[in-house]
Simulated assay, not measured.
Amino acid sequence: MGMEIERKFLVAGDGWRTADGQRIVQGYLNRDKQRTVRVRIAGARAFLTIKGMTSGATRAEFEYPVPLADAEALLALCDGPLIDKIRHRVDHAGLVWEIDEFFGDNAGLVVAEVELSSEDQAIALPSWVSTEVTTDARYFNSNLATHPYRQWR
Rank of each mutant, 00 (worst) to 15 (best):
I50W: 02
I50T: 11
G52A: 01
M53T: 11
M53N: 11
M53Q: 15
M53E: 15
T54R: 15
T54C: 10
T54K: 14
G56T: 13
A57H: 12
A57I: 12
A57Y: 10
T58S: 15
T58H: 10
R59F: 10
R59D: 00
R59C: 11
A60N: 06
A60E: 14
A60D: 14
E61Q: 10
F62D: 08
E63M: 05
E63Y: 04
Y64N: 04
Y64G: 06
P65F: 04
P65T: 04
V66F: 03
V66Q: 03
P67C: 03
P67F: 07
L68Q: 02
D70K: 10
D70R: 06
D70S: 11
E72N: 10
E72D: 14
A73G: 11
L74K: 04
L74I: 12
L75W: 01
L77I: 03
C78L: 05
G80I: 07
L82H: 12
I83Y: 01
D84W: 02
K85C: 09
I86R: 13
I86P: 08
R87Q: 10
V90I: 14
V90L: 01
D91R: 13
G94C: 00
L95G: 03
L95W: 01
V96S: 13
V96Y: 05
V96H: 02
V96C: 11
E98F: 06
I99L: 09
D100V: 07
D100G: 07
E101L: 11
F102I: 03
F103V: 10
D105H: 01
D105A: 14
D105E: 12
N106F: 08
G108K: 08
L109Y: 01
L109V: 04
L109C: 09
V111P: 04
V111E: 06
A112S: 07
A112F: 02
A112C: 04
E113F: 00
V114A: 06
E115D: 02
E115I: 06
L116C: 09
L116Q: 08
S117N: 14
S118I: 08
E119P: 13
D120P: 01
D120L: 13
D120I: 13
